[in-house]
Design a protein around this nucleic acid. Structure first.
Lengths: 189, 189
DNA sequence: TAAATAAACTAACAACTGTTAGTTTATTGT
DNA sequence: ACAATAAACTAACAGTTGTTAGTTTATTTA
């Protein structure tokens, strides 16, 4: 396995601090202390505080984009696609809880990359809505207002990062099934 | 109707700014500019930046506490109680969208009042869980892991403040029914 | 072993932070 | 008309912010 670079280590520690206090409340001196070095030394590895936030958030946003694309390309019905979407969120939330916290709470501080981030997010939500609408049209999903349904499901999935740390061990498979039960079975025909 | 005091006006404008950028990223000079006065003038009305955040969040947290207490005292079954909880969230989110954003995103910066806030939140979640558990025990609610169910419902309800501003007009009654349909009908026996 | 690189250090900067002190101006109640 | 109050102002503070410059130290490569 490729060893973690010093830069990656800094970004990982930064994500953890951002999760607890938010991007704006974490200073470069806070981050340096957590790394046990001086603030100035951070700049041997990263170019700015902004760049750390961008690295964290954009990588995750692109993971979601790729994952959604694969789901749209897959040969499944709407219910199957929704189950895959739940699995995608569980996977990313499990593997990068801290980064996801930054994405959810601090995306508005992206500056340069804000426009790009919003483009990815809008495309994601647009695909999500398509899955729901097709499911209703093809009589796989009960009729409910599609935007309310998407909002409700996405709220739960986007909040996973808040909830996962409270569980000792997380079985991805099991959690995905529990969430499918709750989020889908109720709307299933 | 009692006219809004200058202090209330400052707190209302602050909540709006906090919603957009987060508590830590909003400076007293930002707030002053939004009020069209100088930063120092704010201190004729409020005692500190911290106090503004506390005023915003604690008031809402106490609204939830009071509302939940009334629901627990009401003469209804578990499904009825869950419907009332949904109504409570819709009501508060509709009436104080900006404040709710601060509560959800910036409660960790409460300092003095942090302990008190967490006490109220824990009590709220404890009651929520009791409703679900009783509902399962009395065969009104399908068996699902109670903590996963609470997490899922609360995620949606706590995210309402993000979603409400996107709708032009919000009919509280109608939204409460749509959400009940999605959040409850699926778990209803 | 010499050279190159990675990664830390000290010192300092200009800008910005929340807040206080003291003062002036406008409005309200008697 | 006068006194009291509400609400703004200017000026300044001490501390913190992200970041740069220049240097030293340790490790790796040729």
């Amino acid at each position: 396995m490729p060893k973690e670079t010093r830069k990656q280590e800094i970004i990982r520690v930064a994500a953890k601090l951002f999760k607890n206090k938010g991007y704006s409340a974490v200073t470069m001196r806070d981050l340096a202390k957590a790394m046990d070095i001086k603030a100035a030394s951070l700049y041997n590895h990263i170019s700015s505080k902004q760049a750390i936030l961008q690295d964290i958030i954009i990588a995750i946003a692109e993971d979601f984009t790729t994952g959604m694309q694969q789901i749209m390309d897959s040969d499944t019905n709407s219910i199957g696609r929704l189950e895959q979407v739940i699995g995608l969120h569980v996977k990313i939330a499990t593997e990068n809880t801290d980064g996801l916290a930054a994405l959810n709470s601090d995306w508005m501080h992206l500056e340069n990359k804000l426009e790009y981030y919003l483009k990815l997010r809008n495309a994601y939500e647009s695909n999500y809505l398509k899955i729901i609408q097709k499911g209703i049209a093809q009589n796989e999903i009960k009729f409910v207002k599609p935007d309310v349904l998407m909002f409700s499901m996405l709220s739960t999935l986007r909040s996973l990062y808040l909830w996962l740390p409270k569980k000792e061990i997380v079985n991805q498979q099991e959690l995905t099934e529990s969430l499918s039960q709750i989020l889908i079975k109720g709307i299933n025909k």
